[in-house]
Structure formats: C-alpha cells, structure tokens
Simulated scan of single mutants.
Amino acid sequence: MSIQLASVSKSFDAHKALNSVSLSIEDGTFFVVLGPSGCGKSTLLRAIAGLEPVDAGEIKLSGQAVAGKGLHLPPEQRQVGVVFQSYALWPHMNVAANVAFPLETAGETRSAVAARVAECLETVALTPFRQRKPAELSGGQRQRVALARCLAQGARTVLMDEPLANLDPHLRSTMEEELAAFHRASGATTLFITHDQREAMALADKVAVMWDGSILQADDPDTLYRRPNSKKVAGFIGRSTLVPVDVLRVENGEAQVRFGNVIAVVDCPDQTVSGPATLLLRPEHLVLATGTSGFEATVERTIYRGGYWEVFVRLEGLSQPLLMVLHRKAEPGELLQLDILRGWVLPE
C-alpha cells in the first residue's frame, strides 16, 4: 500500500502539530520518520492510521482518499496496523489467541482463523511459542506477536510508533535485524517513527527528518548523511562540524573554499555561488596528511570510544574546533598535519 500526504495540517489549540506535511511513500517501502520528541511524529502516524482527524490537507492510501475535507475514514476501514511502544497485547490470551483476535471479531470462520494465524506466526518465527502468554515472552517476542496481529488483520501497511523505545540498548540491534527480516518476509509498507537516528539509518529505505510539525528533508539514509539540505538537518544527523567559509570558485559540482588558513576542494550543490557559505565536515572528512601536504592543527582534547578516538583539533583562524577520528591515541597539544577529503557546502 502506498501512502500520500498532501499539505496535511493538525493543531491542538494554538500548537500546530502538523504544518502542511506532504509525503509520498511507495508500496513496500520501509520509511522512517525521524525527529526530536514533540516534533509531530506520533501525530502524523495517528493521522495516517485514522486515530486522529486532520484539520486540512488530504491522505491517500493506495490512491484512495481516507482523510480530507469532509472525509475521515475510520481506522478499521484503512487496512492499517499499528504497533505501539506497549505492544497492547491481551495478557490473559496466549500468542495464538492474540493474533486470532482481530480475525474472530471480524467474524471469520474457525478454519480460516486457524490457517491465517499459523501463516502469520510462521512469518514472524513464533510458531513454537503459540501457546505461551505474553508474560512468558521476551520484549522482542512480544513485539513480534504485535506484528503478527497486524498481518492477521489484513494490514497492508504497518505503522510503528517508537517500538524499540522500551527495550534495553543491547537488545535493540537484535530487534532491528528482526524488524528488517519481518519487512522482507511480509512485504508490507512500513512507517516507523523514532527519535533515534541510529535506528533510522539502520532500518530505512528512506528517512524523513521532521521538526516542529514540518518535514525538513526526505531522502535515502546515505544522501541524508552526505548531502543534508540545511544546517538543522546537518546538525541533527550524525556528528559534524559546521564551518563558515568563503566559496572561491564553483565548477562541476565542486567548490574551492577557504576558512582560516586552509583552502580545500569540496562537494557542493549545483546552485552554489561564490561568497560566504557553510561547510559541513564529518569526522571522516579529516584525515592525516601524507608527506608535507595539508595544514597544521593542534589537538585540543580526545575521547576514547573503544577501538578509536574522537579528536577535537584547533586550527589557526577558526573559532570552533573540528572533530575527526583517529585509530591511535593523540595527546592534547600534539601537532597534526591534516588533509580534507570532500566535505559538503550546505545549500543556502
């Protein structure tokens, strides 16, 4: 099921939770909406699910309008399943009964229910646990029960509202793999809400960065990381340093820039022009120079991260330190000879 939102807005009193949001999510995509708490992510999910009416704009599922002016299709008619943080399982029912519940309430025959439950439990690898109660399952297994229930009710789209938030950090990477496997096995269009950029990058085919009710940028994870379209997105995604520079010349997608006593050639958008700009430098863009090339920088402080060090270096003529990564220890005050590999001039 594809999802289209066109200029969708929703306010709660004076607070605009959704501010003219437009998105297009292709059928079968694992799409992540990423943003800080309170930015409108959950409101967006609830609007798509039909749990929250919208004030303006239109929502379509597979081309059919489900929300718009004078229209609000109820949740049960949208073929959308929702997985909340709590998983919302019936504690007195076993796994099979939890998965069967939406089918039974829809009036399906006993044989049809049994066949569908078996199919869905097999999809999420829970067949051996069909007789267990939720209290006898791990957090990850309970999540898979919730996913199987979404499949059982015929959900062509699965909406997940921060489903990993209640898990211990050491379990999250395991559950990321399980969610990716579930998506491959089910083929369902998946909308995943999170404030954790690591989760977003690990899972998504495409990520939308949301801020104050608006979508700032929607792209594949690699493009979002390497070529953010604003300072806000650049600062939110990954570790970086934003450096004021002068663009000296532009040619074939490259810009020659100057900051402090450094001149470097970096990547830039097509619309870049000469003059003041902002350069995004990721830690991997700064490397130790070979031979006598490059420029000098002084180590200000280091942080050991297990197998590598984050190193903050100070350049002459630059007000803030630059962040880089080294696989050897560096001492404060040490003089390093560095080069810049690429970098990205932010669009104005």
Rank of each mutant, 00 (worst) to 15 (best):
E26V: 01
R156V: 00
L318E: 12
I303G: 02
T123S: 09
A185P: 08
S230T: 11
E104V: 13
E26M: 06
L346A: 03
R301E: 10
L338Q: 07
V95K: 07
T127E: 13
L103Q: 11
K60R: 15
R239K: 15
F12K: 08
G139R: 10
F12T: 05
L44S: 11
S2F: 07
S9L: 03
L242E: 04
M175T: 06
L45G: 01
A56E: 15
G253Y: 02
P91A: 08
N252H: 12
Q197F: 09
S274A: 13
N229C: 06
L191F: 07
R78W: 06
T278K: 02
P332H: 07
F182G: 03
R258Q: 15
G260M: 09
H195W: 11
R342T: 12
M324I: 00
G307Q: 06
V207F: 04
A106E: 05
A264G: 12
R342K: 14
V33D: 04
H72A: 13
Q85F: 04
L137M: 11
L159V: 03
Q256D: 12
F236S: 11
G28S: 04
A146M: 06
E122C: 02
E108L: 15
M201Q: 13
G40I: 10
L346Q: 02
N166Y: 04
W90S: 10
E334C: 09
G38W: 05
S62K: 12
S9Y: 09
A100P: 08
D339G: 05
G260T: 04
R226C: 03
V273D: 04
F295H: 07
E58T: 14
Q79T: 03
G50V: 10
D212F: 15
E316Y: 00
G187V: 13
R172Y: 08
I3R: 00
N166T: 13
